[in-house]
Amino acid sequence: MKKYTVRLTLNGTPREYSVGANELLLNVIREQEKLTGTKYGCGIGECGACTVHVNGKPTLSCLELAVSADGADVVTIEGLARGGELDPLQKSFLDNNAVQCGYCTPGMIMVGRNLLDENPNPTEDEVRTHMRGQLCRCTGYASITKAVMGAGSAGAFRMPAE
């Protein structure tokens, strides 16, 4: 099969891959880079476990061909903590016990981070709308909602104004 060269900036480092036309971004990240924080949950866009940032936008890497990401800036969960410091959202997930089995966690954090970048102080409804495509079977979502709001500029989950 014909191979294509794909260049990415991955977690801040320029990288180059030779891939088939049908290779998924998810597989490049997980298999070539061995960055296994990005999860396979369904492979067809149902669960959100594979979410990464492509040029700052949350992207389902199981639905993205590697060739179509050529030239992109890609950030995975491993690229979020900088210089040994956890991202405030990662800390908030721990403070709010928003992690159980943890399999959905990387995708959740990537989507939550994107929401906070666009909207530093989201309401509960905004969190629920933004994250409704991310499945979690363990937590029932309340702790995750709290964690995302807790990492916002208000610094805590707040009840909606009556």
Binding site: T36, Y40, L86, V99, G102
Partner: peptide, 18 residues
């Protein structure tokens, strides 16, 4: 914080598919 928490929020925890 749960002891496996940091590994889980940073994506470094290993599950069988990893």
């Amino acid at each position: 914080w749960r002891k496996d928490g940091i590994a889980k929020v940073t994506g470094s925890e290993k599950y069988a598919p990893d």
